[in-house]
């Protein structure tokens, strides 16, 4: 916790037009729980357009008017074109002008790292999404109670005892789950697990599913156990919120008890970790630009973010 982050902030230009043109790329933000991704997109777009409007914007265009009697003398007058005035046509930058999408969708109850593409960066965001990079989650569960939607806000449907569960029970269960997932992956490639080809596959890197429907766990372990709460860390691909909630429920049942999820946090997305993420209070233009620069460096360093060369299950 003693780690202090000192960042040199670049000085933001006063001109809104140049700031608008520079606004292309990926940003990494910290999504709070109980907010949807759509809403975060809208918030970011609103903040950006609002701040751009407060900067020096484009002046009104000219309005040329010809006055006088056409037979005698005509004078050409150049005036400010009021039809182009911000009070008449509205502010220069509108919220809807900012294109903004996420590269990995996080569910409503999930908090943590959310990569977002701004303007032309939305293409990059789509590319990162299609590459199915690994994400790490920290999922918290509470033993002893099962709810109807596997989450803490649901109705409690079952109560069980949990005093007999020790930390090594959870470790044992999780390691067997991890190995079964790994075996599932190699089975899907169609090679014998004891063969040379399987070894060569494993050397090349992680085996990834080609479709985006089947969730696959690469690693799962318990990082904290304070009965009745426990925290597991999951590395996975293609997961979705309900899958992780159901995972906790399943762990509860396998431990001969019940459990429900009390929190999901995405702590890592490929090469982006919590240090890069922008907190809600820092969603301002200045911080967004700094973060964009930081993310650009990471993307340039690791070409497998945008170029897919891992082994896929056909």
């Amino acid at each position: 916790m003693q780690k202090t982050i000192t960042k040199t902030l670049s000085v933001l230009t006063e001109d809104a037009t140049s700031a608008w043109k520079a606004l292309n790329g990926i940003i990494c933000i910290y999504k709070p729980a109980d907010v949807s991704c759509h809403r975060i997109c809208n918030t970011i777009a609103y903040k950006i357009s609002n701040e751009l409007n407060q900067m020096k914007c484009r002046p009104c265009s000219d309005y040329i008017q010809i006055e006088g009697d056409p037979i005698k003398h005509l004078t050409v007058i150049r005036k400010e074109n009021l039809a182009d005035h911000p009070l008449v046509v509205g502010p220069r930058y509108d919220q809807k002008d900012v294109r903004c999408t996420w590269s990995n969708y996080l569910g409503f109850n999930t908090s943590g790292i959310l990569l977002m593409g701004l303007q032309n960066g939305t293409k990059m965001a789509a590319l990162i999404r299609s590459n199915k990079l690994m994400r790490s989650y920290r999922v918290k569960g509470l033993l002893g109670r099962a709810t109807d939607n596997f989450y803490k806000d649901g109705k409690v449907v079952e109560r069980t005892t949990m005093g007999f569960i020790k930390s090594h029970h959870i470790d044992h269960l999780l390691s067997s789950m991890q190995s079964s997932h790994q075996r599932k992956m190699f089975n899907a490639t169609g090679v014998d697990l004891q063969s040379q080809t399987a070894y060569e596959l494993a050397v090349k890197g992680q085996v990834r599913p080609v479709c985006s429907e089947t969730p696959i766990l690469y690693g799962i372990k318990c990082v904290d156990y304070k009965p009745p709460e426990f925290t597991i860390e999951v590395q996975c691909v293609n997961e979705y919120e309900m899958y992780l909630k159901a995972l906790i429920h399943e762990i509860g049942i396998k431990l001969h008890s019940t459990a429900h999820c009390i929190g999901i946090q995405c702590i890592r997305h490929s090469y982006f970790n919590l240090d890069n993420a922008l907190l809600q209070k820092h969603w301002t233009l200045q911080h967004i630009f700094d973060n964009m620069e930081e993310c650009r460096k990471i993307i340039n360093e690791h070409e497998n973010l945008t170029k897919n060369n891992a082994i896929v299950i056909q």
Binding site: Y63, N81, L82, A83, D84, H85, L87, V88, V89
Partner: peptide, 16 residues
């Protein structure tokens, strides 16, 4: 919108 009228209407100009 009002933009089509603004350069001809004095009332709108005064309002702006």
């Amino acid at each position: 919108n009002f933009a089509a009228y603004i350069n001809k209407s004095r009332t709108l100009q005064e309002l702006v």
